[in-house]
Structure formats: C-alpha cells, structure tokens
Amino acid sequence: MTRNVPHSLRSDARDNRDRLLDTAQALFSTEGLTVPMREIARRAHVGPATLYRHFPTKESLVTAAFADQLRACQDIIDRASTDPDPWHGLRQVIENICELHARDRGFTEAFLSAYPRATTVTAGRDHMLKVIADLAHRAKLTGHLRPDVVPDDLILMLLANKGIQTASPAAQVAASRRFAAFVIQALTNCPHNTPLPPPARLTPTEQDTPRTS
C-alpha cells in the first residue's frame, strides 16, 4: 500500500503517522466510523496531541485512511467506463465494488454517507456515481440492462451489501460475490421482468452522516 507522506516529516513523525493510519484503517474496517479519536490514538500507542497534530479533524483522518480504497474504487469504475461493451463494464463494476466494500465496513460507511467535509471522499463518490450513471445509460441502449433501473439503485445495492453479516472476512466476501450475482440477474433485461415499484431517493446527503467525535 502506498501513501502520500509529506517529505518534510522526520522519520519518527512519519512512523507515528503510518501507525495512526494503520490503526485507523483496522478499526474503521471492523467497527465503522464511530471509533473515537482518542481510542485510535491509544491503540496506535501515541498521545492524542500527536494524533491531532497529524490529523486535526476526524474528517482528515477518514480521508487519509481511505485514500487507497478510494483510488481502487475509482480505478474499477474508470476501467469499466472504457469497456466497449457497457453491459459487461457495468457487471464488472457491480462485482468488484461489492467485493471491495465487503472487505472494508468503514470505507462503505464513508462512501455512502459522504462524511462531512471529507471532500476527497465526497467528490470521489459523486464522480463515480456520475460515471456509473452514464455507463448504465449506455448499457440500457444495448438492450441488456432493464430500462427501469435508476442511479439510486446502486446506493440501494451497496446498502444491502453492507448489511451482510458473516462469521469471517472470507465468508463476507463469498456472500458478497453471490449477492452481486443475484443483483446482476435482477438487473438483466428479460421478457418476463415485471415492473419495479417507484424508485426511492437514496443518494447520501450530509444530514444522513453519522456524527462522531
């Protein structure tokens, strides 16, 4: 995993920063974004002052902790958007994004909630949703994607994928892969499809964001 670390930091400061990020990633992944900042500092074996010197706000820590996951998510979607077969590209997005989010609960929460003032996560999410909406539009034109699918159905899919609870990370990924296969079948345009209920507005907003300290 590569990180953008300020070159001006001393080696001990860089070690502290890396340890804080490793700890935050691990805790966010298993416990979500509600982990207190002081608990992250304690688990990283540094004082709160050291934590706040590197990351003055929870938002700045969330952004830094999920930078690699966000880039991976963007890469998946950007590659799919250039696929000459948009339906194949959309299926790849569903499979890969579900697995990526299944591996990291904290990233799913940050992505879905647009964590306040974590502008990198918010901007990245909004860009990805726009790219996926365009990909879905082109997939509809091929006749493979059912015509009543709307962009917010992606959020519905991620919310459902987030709700999968298993006994181990391996089982979580396996269940998520099976769920993605069900989703793809449900989205496939078939003659026997029945009309869907009206769509719900699910795109995250700031008021949906969990308040943490």
Rank of each mutant, 00 (worst) to 15 (best):
M1A: 15
R3G: 07
V5M: 03
P6H: 02
H7R: 14
D12G: 08
N16W: 00
N16R: 08
D22I: 04
D22S: 12
D22Y: 01
T23C: 02
A24T: 02
Q25V: 13
A26Q: 11
S29D: 04
G32A: 06
M37Y: 00
I40W: 02
I40N: 00
R42M: 05
G47M: 02
A49I: 13
A49W: 06
T50Y: 03
T50C: 06
T50Q: 05
R53H: 10
H54S: 06
F55I: 04
K58F: 02
E59C: 06
S60C: 00
T63F: 04
A64V: 00
A65Q: 03
F66N: 05
L70D: 06
R71V: 04
Q74G: 08
D75S: 09
I77Q: 04
D78E: 07
R79K: 15
S81G: 09
R91H: 12
R91Y: 07
Q92W: 10
Q92S: 15
E95M: 15
C98E: 01
L100R: 04
A102D: 02
R103K: 11
R103W: 01
D104A: 04
E109M: 10
L112P: 04
S113H: 14
P116T: 12
R117V: 13
T119P: 03
G124T: 00
H127F: 09
H127I: 06
M128H: 13
D134K: 10
L135A: 04
A136L: 11
A136W: 09
K140V: 12
H144P: 08
D148Y: 02
P151E: 10
P151C: 13
D152G: 09
D153G: 05
D153F: 03
I155S: 12
I155M: 07
L156R: 08
N161C: 15
G163I: 12
G163Q: 15
I164K: 11
Q165R: 15
T166M: 09
T166G: 03
A170T: 11
A171Q: 14
A171I: 12
Q172R: 15
A174D: 09
A175R: 09
A175P: 01
R177Q: 09
R177S: 07
R178Q: 14
A180N: 08
A181E: 12
V183K: 02
I184C: 13
I184W: 13
Q185V: 07
Q185L: 13
Q185I: 05
A186K: 08
A186S: 12
N189Q: 14
P191V: 02
P195E: 00
P195I: 02
P198W: 04
P199V: 04
P199N: 03
R201Y: 10
L202M: 05
T203Q: 14
T203L: 14
E206R: 13
D208S: 11
D208C: 06
T209G: 11
P210F: 05
S213L: 07
S213M: 06
